[in-house]
Design a protein around this nucleic acid. Structure first.
Lengths: 224, 224
DNA sequence: CGGTATTTTGAGCAGTGTCAAAGACGGTGG
DNA sequence: CCACCGTCTTTGACACTGCTCAAAATACCG
């Protein structure tokens, strides 16, 4: 068995799991709830740079970088298993297949970051919000193993705005527009995709960048 | 010695080193020239998602993902050493310190991507261009080991626009504004930082995210 | 030396941001 | 169980950043 030491911990919504500038010595696994990565632009504006859903690993970069360049905060009440960095290092060293899996996870997160750059840099408001919704749905589906009819967005429109580079007011207008186009139904934070194909087309969403089932198998290691 | 097999190859400006969707079986080291990562937004717009300068490693994610989610293209005439994936895998397996160094490189590239998200998502045009110039200068300085008086930008204003989420016309205006503010001098593609502190302040640029000299040392491995 | 790509500039416009206020929801304490 | 309160959502009017289109000037390349 892996026999990994860990500490279970709970954070309230908006609490900090990791702070920018920290010297971090743990890697966490998100057991329940949602988190987001956040970075200050130096003038009070905060940009959301990533999203973590249950089963995601948080802080993999701590294996390689001494300090953290962004905050990680709880979007909802959150339950994590915090593992000492040294334990992760030992495990990766003794189990190359584990190291490989962590590398895959990091590579996918990086790919998601690239897609966010495209989303924010190249698409207009409507497509941006649509794409954001698509990504969230697909990632949640992948985690749960099935396709849900509707999703409870764990974030406010203000936060969606911080993730897409729009204002909360504009996010609201775009959601309304998507509804008017018959692509989504919603009430409060619940979203139902009444026309998934249509939404996907508006967003130009393709799940390729999430690399579903297309990872490189661990090369030549016995997985024991 | 490492004894790594490689093929040296030259690409003309705008040539493709890697194409979106490819199954890639090489990792490249950029020996000379500049490259950029590019992704289509699905509607003809192309967003630049990364920049590679000499000594950068291109395609590290091929170790973990079977297909590539973005293009890598030459910005200038480019000279690379292409290494078979299997050789890199073997080397990482036999030399943990090498694997660790690659992880650091990947983590820093990821950190840069996060900062680009902040730049494009949270800053206005002027700050965006200023930040872009700062990052380019600092990365080039780090590579060459000294601080240059001026920099030859290896890209057109159109391309700067694709990297910052602005139009070429607006990039031009922002460069003019930066000049008018006494922060930069320039002629054609050559840029001189006549007031580095000022530019840095406008951009809210901090080199922390490039993690200069703050990587985690390879844990417990003998480097031989 | 001509051709092509890039830079530069101007004018007008569209998409987003800003500001402000009203309405909806959910939690809390009496 | 209900009233209150704070947060979030929704809406409108208006301002402004950045985009579009177009053309001239400039630099590079064969």
């Amino acid at each position: 068995m892996l026999n990994l030491p860990f500490t279970r911990k709970t954070f309230m919504a908006s609490g900090y799991l990791v702070r920018q500038g920290d010297r971090c010595d743990t890697v966490s696994v998100l057991l329940d709830g949602y988190c987001y990565g956040q970075k200050d632009d130096g003038e009070g504006n905060c940009q959301i740079v990533s999203l973590a859903i249950p089963s995601d690993v948080i802080g993999l970069e701590h294996l390689y970088l001494q300090t953290t360049d962004h905050n990680v905060r709880a979007l909802t009440t959150v339950d994590v298993a915090m593992i000492p960095l040294s334990a992760v290092q030992q495990l990766s060293a003794s189990r190359p297949a584990v190291a490989h899996a962590l590398g895959i996870h990091q590579a996918i997160n990086h790919a998601i970051a690239r897609e966010w750059i495209v989303n924010i840099g190249a698409r207009d408001g409507l497509r941006r919000v649509a794409h954001f919704l698509c990504e969230f749905a697909v990632r949640c589906d992948a985690w749960r193993g099935d396709t849900a009819a509707g999703y409870e967005l764990p974030m406010s429109q203000e936060q969606i705005g911080q993730a897409t580079g729009l204002t909360a007011v504009h996010v609201n207008r775009m959601l309304k527009t998507l509804h008017a186009a018959g692509l989504i139904e919603r009430s409060w934070r619940n979203v139902v995709f009444s026309n998934w194909e249509g939404l996907r087309d508006v967003a130009c969403f393709s799940s390729d960048y999430l690399h579903p089932g297309r990872q490189v198998p661990a090369p030549g290691y016995r997985t024991v």
